[in-house]
Design a protein around this nucleic acid. Structure first.
Lengths: 91, 91
DNA sequence: GCTTTTTACTTTCGGATTGCAAGTGATTAT
DNA sequence: ATAATCACTTGCAATCCGAAAGTAAAAAGC
């Protein structure tokens, strides 16, 4: 879910996910990326910066998780102190 | 999350959760009930059937998770075959 | 062109978490 | 009075996770 959130926020590279404030271990991150790809929530694409490196983007199925993230964000903002709103507007 | 879903659906007793199709082991269930109580998502109440047994209900904070469940249900219905809609109408 | 750094992982390993099975004491049904 | 149900707890093997280190390929710096 945190990987999906990062993708919605614009991050798209392995290093971006690894540097997120939750600081996921890289072995777990690699496993999650693999599983999310198997579930067709994300897909691999070539990096946008001209290099031969990889990046990830949400599939249509993955983008459809946005309302779930927004509902969770709203709940956190309303009920859990310390919740930060990095996700933008509704729907 | 599955405990919260069961509570939204009407189940309220330990046995109800334990008998859910996901069949959670009872030691994990006991742990989750304790944690959800600590997080003030659920609270203990006396059972409704006159016996001296226990039941659980959602707090206001817990009930506020309903939109999250609905968003997840909608996603499952749209993208995951085999998703069953046991949750009722919107909001 | 050669060295250093970055990237995207994999491997290793101790500790935490989980699933399964069985057990327990109190309450309730027969 | 006896049996069954309820709401857990305990014990143990297997799985999963986090932290750290290692690696191969690509990119950056000089």
């Amino acid at each position: 879910m945190l990987v999906v959130r990062d993708l919605v926020l614009g991050g798209s590279r392995f290093k971006d996910f690894a540097r997120s404030p939750e600081s996921i271990p890289t072995n777990i991150l690699a496993d999650r990326l693999q599983r999310l790809r198997a579930a067709e929530v994300i897909r691999q694409i070539p990096a946008a910066d001209g290099t031969r490196r990889l990046a990830y983007e949400l599939t249509e199925k993955g983008a459809a998780l946005r309302p779930v993230l927004l509902a969770l964000r709203d709940w956190g903002l309303a009920w859990e102190s310390g919740t930060e709103a990095r996700l933008g507007s509704r729907v």
